[in-house]
Design a binder for these strands. Structure first.
Lengths: 336, 336
DNA sequence: CTGAAAGCGCTTACAG
DNA sequence: CTGAAAGCGCTTACAG
């Protein structure tokens, strides 16, 4: 491959002139610029971004660390991140961690060695070692769909799970429901607990005590949802509506109800959380709280870009509001 | 950040010695190595991969160009690609093209400038300019889920759509079906045509002429599938089975059938193609031909790795066999 | 408007 | 086993 020296020689000018011409400095004669452009074409010259990066201490690459790209939720985020970053001339290197703490640390190390300009991360393990590693680096980063640990001063972009749960439960209450069940995620989940807290607070606020018999801790999958719906129905056959802490659980509930010939929404209303693509299907039509992937990814990218451009500034975190997507799995309670 | 010079100074040795120690050359005194390791820790030194890359002409980064990462099919491929490449110390930069020819070209240009070691690409536009661009680069690449154009000598990894269609139709025929309809993708689609060709050839082989009245060209989406099923049923109400050229079309067909109370598989069998995650759902349970994403991604990554390591060799393309996934949307024809 | 020189942070023959 | 020197392909003061 031709390099800048080749084109300087070809033209009988100095390397510095060529460099300035390529970078379109104002103090280069127009004619020289033209000649350089021509030489570039004819020698098929491509500037070496590595060399440029070394000297400018800028690589125009951003690392995106996510649990798994094949989870549509994360690929949705990734898509938005990439779109914004691309517009600004950055490329993104992504790393699947599969929620493996070793891989998460390795990714950060690589990012440092490779001189990335910034990072967007969704770590699962926030142990001391990892937090320390993050504190030691001098490149900006933002947490995405996570909250920043106390020891770190970088911003996060996350959904306001608590508020979203309030919205969901309020929707059910407005439809006239009082016996509202909850199918939850594992107790270890921060996200799940926020959603549970929103459910409980809203119930209480309306004088509907969130009875333990109406709360079933499921898990995260369709199978969990199916089982949980069974348990919930057994414990509280009087429920008229169910708030599932995520769509997979909601779909599992729908499945159990279909198997047991309990009509949705005629006999029972179900609301989910996430707005997965599944939720749109003819057989499902699940009313749910959308986590706006596009908005979250874009915001994270924009925050990062700002921090890169105004070195040293730290920005405020952002809580994104989830959006109620009304489909056909809920209906007003019929007063009989 | 500390650099190699700092640690040399700190230890009172030369930069070359430090470099050799870091890279674990055999001709360095053990004690020196130990000292270097210690200094690295205490100064929190991180080798600069950019500088290393510049001199070694090797960046350990691979570009993965795909239409859209948020399409689960492509993210499935990406996942497999990343896994293999990660094991070998490479990172992957991905670029969504959104099937935009300009973006596809830009991605290749960036890849050259940034000195990627290789590329895995799924281009949509293969015009002359693009083919020329690809021919001009001296880095190995492989086409993924695409076929290599004649002018290029790099390998591809794709599904054997023709064979897969034969398998699908044979399955239906073995179940006793003779009136088999086909819901196809647009005529401009290579993939769609291969699947159609497989359908036609198999029908003929069994003396079942592939009548035009049983073939409906749909599109790619669920909506298309629903419409197409309607048309097909109108033209040929005697069909007992349908081969949908992709799962979305198949699901659309299922939807139309559900709306019209035509029981699947009791009254009509449906087979799809792709094995999307949708196909597993309780309400769908679609029998289909799986395009093995994991296998394809892995193979593409492995081919590329081989080409990078044995510079100059060009490997053979690979046609991956799709796999029949039997669920509950097909059953033997009941002879009445 | 242009060129010579220094330097980004490394590696790698070459000599000793 | 170690060091001095050259060089990877660029950019950027500095001088003219």
């Amino acid at each position: 491959m031709a390099n800048i020296k080749d084109i300087a020689k070809h033209l009988g000018v100095s390397v510095s002139t060529v460099s300035r011409a390529i970078n379109n400095h104002h103090d280069v004669r127009e004619e020289t610029k033209l000649q350089v452009m021509e030489a570039i074409k004819s020698l098929n010259y491509r500037p070496n971004a590595i060399a440029k990066g070394l000297i400018q201490k800028k690589t125009y690459t951003i690392g995106l660390m996510i649990p798994e790209i094949s989870d549509p939720f994360f690929s949705g985020l990734a898509n938005a991140v990439e779109e914004i970053l691309f517009e600004h001339g950055y490329q993104v290197v992504y790393g699947n961690t599969n929620r493996n703490p070793e891989k998460e640390k390795q990714f950060i190390s690589k990012a440092i060695e490779r001189q990335f300009d910034g990072l967007i991360i969704t770590p699962d393990c926030l142990d001391e070692e990892f937090v320390q590693l993050l504190s030691s680096i001098d490149m900006p980063f933002v947490f995405l769909r996570r909250r920043t640990p106390a020891a770190i001063s970088m911003p996060f972009v996350d959904v306001d799970h608590y508020e979203a749960a309030i919205t969901a439960v309020n929707y059910l209450i407005e439809l006239g429901h009082k016996q509202i069940g909850f199918i939850g995620m594992p107790e270890s989940s921060f996200t799940g607990n926020e959603r549970l807290r929103g459910y409980k607070d809203t119930m209480r606020k309306h004088g509907l005590s969130p009875d333990q018999s109406r709360i079933v801790i499921g898990g995260r999958t369709i199978d969990h949802g199916r089982e949980a719906m069974g348990k919930l129905y057994e414990k509280s056959p009087d429920v008229t509506a169910v708030f599932a802490a995520n769509d997979l659980l909601g779909i599992g509930a729908l499945e159990w109800l279909a198997v047991h010939q309990i009509q949705v929404p005629d006999k029972l209303s179900v609301i989910g959380f996430d707005n997965l693509e599944y939720a749109e299907l003819y057989w499902i039509r699940l009313t749910t709280m959308e986590q706006p992937r596009g908005e979250m990814g874009s915001r994270a990218a924009q925050l990062l870009l700002q921090m890169i451009e105004n070195k040293g500034t730290t920005l405020n975190s952002e809580l994104i509001q989830a959006k109620l997507i009304v489909r056909q799995s809920c209906k007003p309670l019929e007063v009989t």
